[in-house]
Design a protein around this nucleic acid. Structure first.
Lengths: 233, 233
DNA sequence: TCGATTTTGTGAACGCCTTCACCAACTCGT
DNA sequence: ACGAGTTGGTGAAGGCGTTCACAAAATCGA
């Protein structure tokens, strides 16, 4: 009666294939960032200690992560910056640019559309859509806002596989359903709700308000001294 | 996952005191959100299954988390929504509003300043500062941009203990140093760099570009079918 | 060439977190 | 009152990830 449980939604580090541990994958972008900076400073090699320094990860952890790539540094020397960069870029699919559709042209959406940091890091926003007909046609960055009704066409014709959801909370699930229906299999959700998506679709959640609440918890435990009379000057 | 990219220095769930596991703390905001919604829908009680449903956490995990609060649901019935809300709110310090200073009035900064979701979830932005003198005085939301030179005064006089850093990457470390020097002990960093802070200061990192890169990794492993000729119509 | 030094790669230990399995406690219908 | 159905609490087991500690491999100076 015992059936082998199929891997969970997205946690699955799973099987024997070339899959990297999830925790490692989450740190690869950090290494890439650091390596880019080191390169621009002229370094040709770097040690795990240097990478640790500039990413906040422990050096042992850096080495373990990089060893998963099959990457070979040189003992006594360190890693070749260019080579390692290329290797990580390949691992996370940075050899190509990924086309991204941004749903929701509110404050946050427009801010993201204008952010130059995506392009330099492997993603390109190729469309901004909004549900409000009044906004359609409006220029945001170098893109014009399009109607959400055209979502499916946009996604298929522009080879979009990743979407950013920056709508109000109430709309997010509906939008997600449309996205999934149109073939999107990766969603970055900035709306403060948990999205329900079918197996095989990845969702990553970013919730700034929640992050603040987490900080508040720790702050409270420190005894939030600002509440009492100024003690430390 | 978030996860997080998690900070090494503060990971200590540690000792015998009232500390909750870090993973639990990170989920409390989700429960709070879900409970607020359930309440607005008229529910007076809810089961761990319902909470699991609306947060994406497993029901066993929900129960374990809530048990850490010492919270007592009623078997066969569930949890009292109002009571549980109050209990979680207390745990994460939502009984008061936390004063937050926002550094950096760029696209992202102004978007956050206008976001209404903070106030309803325990944080209140009480100042927006920017390094550009030309921006000082400009209105953003219902606050006027102030000079970053006044940071220390602002922080002490307005009892700020949490800061959001939304500056360009190059400026982030300098800003963080100033913040820490002025007494801030919790930082939410939106700049794409790792901040170095002294022990006792908490940093949480939010990096949208990195999240996209993580999604791209998984997308690549799915075989990004959009790269091939349209097979599935 | 040799010894001192640097730095990677990695097995093993450890710790945190999740999941499982099941008991206890409550409701409801009859 | 009782039995069936529901739901929370929790110890135990298992998995994942980090840290530790050290051997192996490279450089460098003399």
């Amino acid at each position: 009666m015992t059936i082998l449980p199929r891997r969970s939604r997205l946690t699955g580090a799973s099987s024997s294939d070339r899959g990297l541990p999830n925790a490692t994958v989450a740190r690869l972008p950090l290494y890439l960032r650091a390596l880019t900076q080191l390169r621009s400073q002229g370094s040709q090699t770097c040690s795990s200690d240097q990478l640790a320094e500039s990413t906040g990860v422990s050096s042992a952890n850096v080495r373990k992560d990089l060893s998963h790539l099959g990457s070979h540094g040189t003992r006594g020397v360190g890693y070749d910056v260019d080579h390692l960069r290329a290797e990580i870029a390949q691992a996370i699919g940075q050899t190509q640019d990924w086309n991204v559709v941004l749903v929701g042209a509110g404050n946050l959406g427009t801010a993201l559309a204008a952010y130059p940091g995506f392009t330099s890091r492997g993603s390109r926003i190729v469309a901004v859509v909004d549900a409000d007909p009044a906004r359609v046609g409006e220029q945001v960055g170098d893109l014009a806002i399009e109607s959400i009704d055209h979502l499916e066409t946009i996604i298929t014709e522009r080879a979009v596989s990743i979407a950013i959801v920056a709508t109000p909370g109430q709309a997010a699930q509906t939008v997600a359903d449309q996205l999934v229906g149109a073939g999107v299999t990766s969603i970055l959700n900035l709306a403060p709700v948990a999205l329900r998506v079918p197996e095989g679709v990845d969702v990553r959640q970013v919730d700034v308000a929640a992050e603040l609440q987490i900080l508040a918890y720790h702050e409270q435990r420190k005894g939030h001294p600002r509440e009492e009379a100024e003690v430390s000057r």
